Amino acid sequence: MSRKIIFLFILLTFLIGCTANSKTASELYSTLDQNLSKKDLALLNSLESHVQKFIQLNEELDMLLDEMKKEDELEAAIETMQIANEEAMYIYNLIELDDQPTNKNLLELRSHVQASIELYMKAMNMQLEGISTGNPKKTDEAHEEMKIINEELNKLYLSMKG
């Protein structure tokens, strides 16, 4: 069982690295040209807004889950996590609906953010599965993966804010 978890963690780490040529979102952001077109600048601002929404979603989720832990409300926590996962998908789709940037680095950053949100949703599903099946290892591993993704997107947002 632990081999599967180690394999999944290595695979996830590999996939995160592959989605952005081993660069973090913040590193990709730092490669953006200073002279973005007006359209690409608007797309960058939109991406920043989407990242901010994702961060807010996770902060609210953490607060709600902390309260639910105190009250021992497992069913409500599961439902809240499912709703948060749907909200993450909504944010992913908002990014997808934006026009394609003409700037190659901005396109790469956008793709990286989307891949991170996608991995977050997969980890959330794995965490829900772990909770449902009573598998604390799966739950903990998924929580750790989500934490790593949140930290990366938080770091990106701080970079964007300057």
Results as ranks from 00 to 15, higher is better:
42 A>R: 10
100 Q>K: 12
101 P>T: 05
86 E>Y: 11
87 E>W: 05
102 T>Y: 10
76 A>P: 10
125 N>L: 10
127 Q>K: 06
134 G>K: 11
67 E>L: 15
129 E>F: 08
119 L>V: 03
89 M>D: 13
94 L>W: 08
95 I>V: 14
82 Q>A: 03
71 E>I: 04
37 S>E: 06
58 N>G: 05
111 S>T: 09
69 K>H: 11
44 L>K: 14
56 Q>M: 06
42 A>K: 13
135 N>P: 00
38 K>F: 09
43 L>D: 00
140 D>R: 13
86 E>A: 12
129 E>Y: 11
131 I>F: 02
62 D>C: 00
64 L>P: 02
43 L>F: 00
129 E>T: 09
111 S>Q: 11
89 M>A: 10
77 A>H: 02
120 Y>K: 02
103 N>I: 06
74 L>G: 00
94 L>Q: 15
107 L>D: 09
109 L>K: 02
51 V>N: 02
70 K>C: 01
55 I>L: 12
44 L>D: 06
119 L>R: 06
104 K>W: 00
83 I>Q: 15
127 Q>Y: 01
97 L>A: 05
80 T>P: 03
39 K>R: 14
100 Q>E: 08
99 D>K: 03
49 S>G: 05
98 D>H: 05
78 I>A: 04
110 R>E: 09
42 A>N: 08
140 D>C: 05
74 L>R: 03
58 N>P: 00
109 L>M: 03
43 L>N: 00
92 Y>T: 09
89 M>H: 10
97 L>E: 05
48 E>K: 14
38 K>W: 07
137 K>F: 10
75 E>W: 08
126 M>D: 08
95 I>H: 05
43 L>R: 04
104 K>P: 00
81 M>I: 15
98 D>I: 11
82 Q>L: 06
81 M>C: 15
134 G>T: 12
133 T>L: 04
49 S>H: 07
101 P>F: 01
86 E>F: 11
77 A>T: 02
46 S>M: 03
82 Q>V: 03
127 Q>F: 02
102 T>P: 08
131 I>M: 04
60 E>T: 15
127 Q>V: 01
64 L>S: 13
134 G>M: 08
44 L>T: 09
138 K>A: 11
67 E>K: 15
116 S>A: 07
85 N>T: 14
81 M>F: 11
125 N>E: 12
